[in-house]
């Protein structure tokens, strides 16, 4: 059996990266002759979640409930996953390669005394079980053997396209209230500030997205970019450097750990095009890269490019748009 940790959004839905992990689990299941796939969710499932997971081929949904699961604790989530795994004899434990997924599965692997492969893109042979994963920020790939059981790995965001199964699974709900040791609750979230409403919806469906990366220079470097966004009626998408540095909010992030966009036109400005960013924008129909470096991966992968300082190119473009509109 394969156990997949499924993360649930505040709205009660399985997040896209978890649905991607389920999609990869199905490939693995098929290669293994149809081993069943069980999902583990934390908390009482909202209405519609169990049937939605069934549509992804899930046989059983194990819901971890009880006071221990009211707030996030990596060790407690791992204890719950292992509780399910031990009772079912699962040979594979998977999750999405998100912050939660990587953290919880590292606990699972450490407690089980087995290796963990983070950010897997695909799997190779079944015996020995081999996976290919991203290393060196995506600049290289590592082939890794997961010879011990359970095989523990996370799936790199947007490595596969989330897709429901041809035939749905049984989708039986099993409510579990495993005992959690006090030690597993010491490192536990004590407060979460107001959840950010999911503002990424317009970004995901936008026809035109203007992108901004480290090349913007600072939190104050976005004026011209925002003006272009406005002139085109576009959405703004940014790289992780921009969100990590606090220049823009996380919901604007495009990439493996952000939104996946598929606009008619993407205009990445000052973004190098690291593989994790590319994972989120590769399905854009046209890409116009603006970058000082003609050899930046984003430039070589784009359909169109302008080589230059975005702080010079964008004002000129904005001016030209206004001029043509006026004329």
């Amino acid at each position: 059996m394969i156990v997949v940790l499924v993360e649930v959004s505040p709205a009660g839905e399985a997040v896209e990266t978890s649905r991607e992990a389920l999609t990869m689990a199905r490939e693995l299941s098929a290669a293994g002759g149809g081993v069943p796939i069980d999902a583990v969710v934390v908390g009482e499932p909202a209405e519609g979640l169990v049937p939605a997971l069934a549509s992804y081929g899930v046989r059983r949904v194990h819901a971890l409930t009880g006071g221990a699961y009211d707030a996030f604790a990596g060790a407690a989530w791992a204890a719950g996953l292992l509780h399910v795994r031990e009772r079912s004899g699962a040979v594979v434990v998977m999750a999405a390669g998100t912050s939660r997924g990587n953290e919880v599965l590292a606990h699972v692997a450490a407690r089980s005394g087995v290796p963990m492969a983070a950010n897997v893109l695909s799997f190779g042979g079944l015996s020995p079980f081999t996976v290919t994963r991203q290393v060196v920020g995506g600049a290289a790939l590592e082939e890794m053997q997961l010879g011990q059981r359970p095989a523990v790995f996370t799936v790199a965001g947007h490595a596969v396209q989330a897709a429901p199964a041809d035939a749905p699974g049984a989708g039986e709900l099993v409510v579990e209230t495993p005992d959690v040791a006090p030690a597993d609750l010491v490192a536990r979230v004590v407060s979460t500030d107001e959840p950010e409403p999911d503002l990424s919806g317009t970004l995901k469906s936008a026809k035109v997205v203007v992108g901004a990366g480290r090349g913007a220079g600072s939190a104050d470097g976005f004026a011209e970019i925002l003006e272009l966004t406005d002139l085109l009626g576009a959405s703004l998408g940014v790289s992780r450097v921009v969100t990590s540095l606090g220049w823009r909010p996380h919901h604007e992030q495009v990439g493996q750990t952000g939104s996946r966009i598929s606009p008619d036109l993407y205009i990445p400005c000052g973004i190098s095009g690291a593989i994790q960013h590319w994972a989120g924008c590769s399905s854009a129909k046209a890409i116009l890269a603006i970058n000082t470096d003609p050899d930046a991966p984003m430039v070589t992968k784009a359909t169109h490019a302008v080589i230059g300082d975005l702080h010079e190119v964008i004002p000129a473009v904005n001016e030209e748009i206004r001029r043509r509109r006026a004329g």
């Binding site: 995506g138 600049a139 590592e142 169109h304 302008v306 230059g308 004002p315 000129a316 001016e319």
Partner: peptide, 30 residues
């Protein structure tokens, strides 16, 4: 480590059309 080996991803062929350099590229962009 459980590493078998590292491999480099295949380079993607570039078919980029460069519209120009700096501010002078603005008309071509529009």
């Amino acid at each position: 480590p459980s590493r078998v080996r590292l491999v480099l991803p295949p380079p993607s062929p570039s078919s980029v059309q460069v519209l120009g350099e700096g501010a002078a590229a603005a008309p071509a962009v529009v």
